[in-house]
Design a protein around this nucleic acid. Sequence first.
DNA 1: TCAAAAGTGTTTCGAATACACCCATGT
DNA 2: ACATGGGTGTATTCGAAACACTTTTGA
Lengths: 195, 195
Amino acid sequence: MRDSTSHAVVGVALRVRDTRLEVQVERAPLRRGEPLEAALGRALDVAALAHVEQLETLVLPDGALATAYLGLAHSGEALPGEWRRVEEVTEHAGLVAAAQARLRAKLSYTNIGFALAPATFTISELREVYVAALGHDVSATNLQRVLLRRGVLEPAEGHRAPGRTGGRPAALFRFVSNRLEVTDEFAALRPPHRP
Amino acid sequence: MRDSTSHAVVGVALRVRDTRLEVQVERAPLRRGEPLEAALGRALDVAALAHVEQLETLVLPDGALATAYLGLAHSGEALPGEWRRVEEVTEHAGLVAAAQARLRAKLSYTNIGFALAPATFTISELREVYVAALGHDVSATNLQRVLLRRGVLEPAEGHRAPGRTGGRPAALFRFVSNRLEVTDEFAALRPPHRP
DNA sequence: TCAAAAGTGTTTCGAATACACCCATGT
DNA sequence: ACATGGGTGTATTCGAAACACTTTTGA
């Protein structure tokens, strides 16, 4: 049985490391009169996260009421805390699954990739991020075209030098915006084109 | 400044009445140790709602922490409480907007219409529900085709007799399922068709 | 016979995918 | 040369939207 002070915040942070999705789950109690974000700040290093959004509020197995947040970190940045591969996490497994599901869905219709990718990247590197987050293969060709057409990506200066094995140097890209934006209105049931 | 007992639940119920979207907003305090749904049950007549889902948890203007829920009611059913047109509501305007946005989005990629429509209906009647909820015009022809192709609707027995002005009798339909289901996976970035 | 409402047939459109081919580099 | 990874050009697919036309009724 929980008492009246047992509201908590659970932060679920995700990032892509190598070709794997990694997660960090931390909990902090909510203090009297404090905003939720303050407690989240004690659970996760929010300043190091590129994007934060609320997931849901639920009763935890121990009976505490908790509000869960999803945080996303750029790949390739050093971040304190214990990161584990998503498959290995057993604590708060439902929340981790919810975080993954939210990320997967938003990768398809928003620019949320900005929060996982580094500042500039090649299409191949971005493809690895998407593969890790989505859990299925992604075509680099189509990824580039979809994100360019939607105006989500733009070319950046410079090229990535090829590796020892050769190959054409890869052009660099960046995300146009670093704030969450819906880039693909749902295809069905849109307003008529011509009024 | 809120104290430790000030967690509340705000229920935002929506329904379509005539060709208008109507809303009912009620608040109830959360009692110690009680699940959120229990408090929601005191705010709204949950048994009369066809669908309920959580919206978000936020700090209200009065400083109280509150978890908001969206409820949907079948059109054409008598429901107690004060219903007002969505445009007229000033209290909890942000939550009402969030509820509308959630409904609009889910109308496009789920079968959530089942919660607004009566048990059986004509395509024209369903169209009015969609128009009221989406806030823009909807073609009856396309609505029928999209929902039939997705397997969301199925024919029901009988026809609706024409009005005084004549016209072909309208066939009746029903929703195949009365539980929320995602019927349209996002078009982009799906797994490859042929592995 | 005509107007009104419902429903079907067919065409158009656009975004995404698939696939063939060309480009630039290291060995 | 040729292997390798990067990138573009083009064709195909498919769901949705648009629009023309047929069906069925009341007046």
